[in-house]
Design a protein around this nucleic acid. Structure first.
Length: 538
RNA sequence: GGCCCCAUCGUCUAGUCAGGCCUAGGACACUGGAUUUUCAUUCCAGCAACGGGGGUUCGAAUCCCCCUGGGGUCACCA
């Protein structure tokens, strides 16, 4: 029975790279009909678990990655919090001490650090002095009785060569003679990562340790620990890390500030800036940056879109398959096909996967997704049936323009009051204010609209065509201007469909308002800039 | 610096283990065109890569060596 685990430390956020690692662990377990364990590495974390853990579990739940054992669900190998497993680590340390595979090191930390620096300066590898190993049993007992502080170090068998057959990297070997004796228990007796991980993975019967590449250098120590404790050594698979766009550097929370200015990340940050503030979130919160899973949820991505992007970072099914549902991933995932090189996270490609999965949604699914965002932005009054019923038609009208659910907010002209339309200033100037005939044309068109019946798209379309013909103008002279007046925007979905949706009353009211606005602007500007007049060709 | 890992279009990748089917395939991005009376879609076309040098071989992206470049890690963090 295959068992994999993901062991996050509670940090209060779920990193996109960590999520990819978790996805691969999960897929491997599911693919093999095994178990996926979630374990919380909260050794020595002073953080508040109650605040720091939920965001991580939420990320898993949102993406639909369930766990067979771990927080909330328990399991036969618990507890699943390292902070509750202290006894087991103490027992392991005791066992190593008694079998002579570890020793108490009384050397002051400063002294050890000094030796390390000296070795570094002399450009030679540093290994432990092992001075404390010279101590007689009596001396040790005396020091213990005197309460002298000490750590416990694992005694590296220096004659060994450690070799592992990594499932993605193949054979990797290390010379143990070059390895310092790692501390496995602090002065206060608490365990360190390498020890705790080995004890947990072994006791939880983890068969495949799938983790990010940065752990590769921990592997030899851990292998030696497995052996010293008499545990079977699991299989290892070290995944290449997720790199920042167009780079080979690890995607990092610390670099968020720099990412903000990068062109590769621009679309994502723009999306965040457009959606997050309007739905009660703070876009400057690092926990809601494109490096974190929560960002994608709160901006309106689909789990399928993010998942698809993540799985293709370092893995491919064959030479052509790009789009995979979670079920298809489960059916076809294999560690054999994980690549070795770091993969740069590509926002453009992510957007493309997202668009693909969005297009496969049913109308109802799209509507309910958008409703959440309209509600969160306060644009939807559930009591106003007329507005509520408008969501469906708007969503349909928007079509492919709706890439993420948050995009619905950029069509807010269909949900705001007629006197709350905000205008794209540049477009308003260019299409309505600057052209000499624009205002007169619009005024004349308004009269036709008043009489237009029925007020539906085909009729409006004919009306516009006739209007254009009669006035001997081009479509581009009137359509863009009309659009700006009605929606405030320079472009958007089909104009007459939009008008029909808005309804006659709204159209007329908005037209009036815009016309009044244009006139007062023209009156204000003593030197009208005619050169800016549109050679409208829309 | 020590140790370890990695190296195909701008990006994600196929091809490498079992050398010839590779004048290196797909996708995203980009560019041009068609459709759409705007935008978005859709369709067609184009651009574009085996880091360098030595071997081995009839033949190398694929095997070997060296170099270069990039990265990770070196805690009483995880």
């Amino acid at each position: 029975m295959i068992r994999t685990r993901f062991a996050p430390s509670p940090t209060g956020y779920m990193h996109i790279g960590g999520m990819r690692t978790a996805l691969f662990c999960w897929l491997w377990a599911r693919r093999q009909g095994g178990c996926f364990v979630l374990r919380i590495d909260d050794t020595d974390e002073k953080r508040n678990l109650r605040d720091a853990l939920p965001p991580i579990l939420d990320a898993f739940r949102w993406l639909g990655l369930d766990w067979d054992e771990g927080p909330d669900v328990g399991g036969p190998h618990g507890p699943y919090f390292q902070s509750e497993r202290g006894e087991r680590y103490r027992a392991a340390v005791q066992q190593l001490l008694e079998s002579g595979k570890a020793y108490r090191d009384f050397e002051p930390a400063e002294e050890t650090a000094r030796q390390r620096q000296e070795a570094e300066r002399a450009r030679r590898p540093w290994i432990s002095s092992r001075l404390s190993c010279e101590l007689s049993e009596r001396e040790i007992e005396e020091k213990l009785a005197a309460g002298e502080p000490h750590v416990v170090r694992f005694l590296i068998p220096r004659e060994r060569t450690v070799q592992v057959t990594d499932l993605v990297r193949g054979e990797v070997r290390w010379d143990a003679a070059l390895m310092p004796d790692p501390v496995i228990a602090r002065a206060d007796g608490s365990p360190l990562y390498n020890l705790a991980t080995v004890v947990d993975d072994a006791q939880m019967n983890i068969t495949h340790v799938i983790r990010a590449e940065e752990h590769l250098s921990n592997t030899p120590v851990q292998v030696l620990l497995y052996e010293a404790l008499g545990y079977p050594v699991p299989q290892f698979a070290h995944l290449p890390f997720v790199a920042a766009p167009s780079s080979k550097r690890k995607l990092s929370k610390r670099d968020i500030g720099r990412y903000r200015g990068q062109k590769e990340f621009r679309k994502l940050f723009e999306l965040g800036d457009a959606v997050l503030p309007r739905t009660g979130h703070d876009p400057s919160d690092d926990r809601l940056s494109p490096v974190m899973v929560a960002f994608y949820r709160d901006v309106g991505f689909l789990p399928a879109g993010l998942l698809n992007a993540l799985v293709r970072l370092g893995w491919s099914l064959d030479d052509e398959t790009e789009y995979l549902s979670l079920q298809e991933m489960v059916n076809s995932f294999h560690l054999d096909r994980v690549v070795k090189g770091a993969a740069g996270f590509d926002p453009d490609k992510l957007l493309n996967y997202q668009a693909h999965w969005m297009s496969r949604l049913s109308e109802e699914q799209r509507i309910s997704g958008c409703r959440r965002f309209l509600l969160a932005a306060g644009l939807l009054d559930e009591d106003d049936a007329a507005i509520a019923e408008r969501i469906g038609p708007v969503v349909n009208l928007l079509g492919d323009r709706l890439r993420v659910f948050g995009d619905i907010l950029s069509a807010d002209e269909f949900f705001v009051a007629d006197d709350a339309v905000t205008y794209d200033e540049k477009a308003f100037q260019k299409r309505v204010v600057a052209p000499d005939q624009a205002v007169d044309l619009l005024r004349s068109l308004k009269q036709r609209l008043e009489a237009c019946a029925p007020f539906d798209a085909p009729t409006l379309q004919r009306l516009l065509e006739t209007f254009v013909q009669e006035n001997g103008i081009r479509f581009g002279m009137i359509a863009p201007a009309l659009r700006v007046c009605l929606t405030g925007r320079p472009q958007g979905p089909d104009l007459t469909e939009s008008m029909a949706l808005l309804g006659r009353d709204s159209c007329l009211t908005r037209l009036d308002r815009a016309l009044g606005r244009a006139e007062s602007i023209r009156a204000d500007s003593s030197v009208p800039d005619r050169t800016a007049a549109a050679e409208g060709d829309c």
